[in-house]
């Protein structure tokens, strides 16, 4: 247990990592999976997300007014944004290490997220940036 804002940030971070893994496993975005097996990734995603909810809501009372230690709407929005950003950053970094060998030579910038089916995140972005410099923004 930390302070309320840190608890909320960690909750959002973990819930997001779990959800990203569940969706990545369903959409077969192999490039951002933290574990190579689709089924194991889905179980991991559900476990992380569910645990984050249980930890945040059931360990202590969260019905707290903002002037008594809770969060006001603006703080909540900001922390949610930061938590989500951190979750995506962490997922992209770790999955790029885990899937370092996943490198599809044919990258189609128009596909965006679709490229993550065959290429890890860092390589896909690298190729997209090169294509952008050469051909401009995708349609």
């Amino acid at each position: 247990m930390f302070t309320f804002p840190i608890d909320y940030y960690l909750f959002v971070l973990a819930a997001n990592i779990g959800v990203i893994q569940i969706i990545a496993s369903m959409e077969k975005f192999h490039g951002i999976l933290l574990i190579k097996s689709i089924i194991a990734t889905r179980i991991l995603g559900i476990t992380i997300s569910a645990s984050s909810f249980i930890w945040f809501f059931f360990v202590t009372n969260r019905n707290v007014n903002d002037y008594e230690g809770g969060l006001d709407a603006n703080q909540q929005a900001l922390l949610f944004f930061l938590g989500t950003l951190s979750a995506f950053a962490l997922t992209f970094i770790i999955s790029s290490i885990v899937n370092a060998r996943m490198n599809n030579k044919e990258i189609d910038t128009e596909q965006g997220l679709g490229n993550l089916k065959h290429t890890n995140y860092i390589l896909a972005v690298k190729k997209n940036i090169r294509s952008w410099q050469k051909n401009g923004l995708p349609r």
């Binding site: 909320y8 909750f11 959002v12 819930a15 997001n16 959800v19 990203i20 569940i22 969706i23 990545a24 369903m26 959409e27 975005f29 997300s49 909810f53 945040f56 809501f57 969260r62 019905n63 809770g70 969060l71 909540q76 949610f80 989500t84 128009e110 596909q111 965006g112 997220l113 679709g114």
Partner: peptide, 27 residues
């Protein structure tokens, strides 16, 4: 009724919906 449960669930639903789609146009 909590200030956190439904808002977080809705935002997670939006993130999931952002990533999913049968093809590029659907997404």
């Amino acid at each position: 009724a909590s200030d956190y449960l439904v808002p977080v669930l809705f935002m997670l639903a939006l993130i999931s919906f952002w990533i999913t789609g049968d093809n590029t146009n659907d997404r």
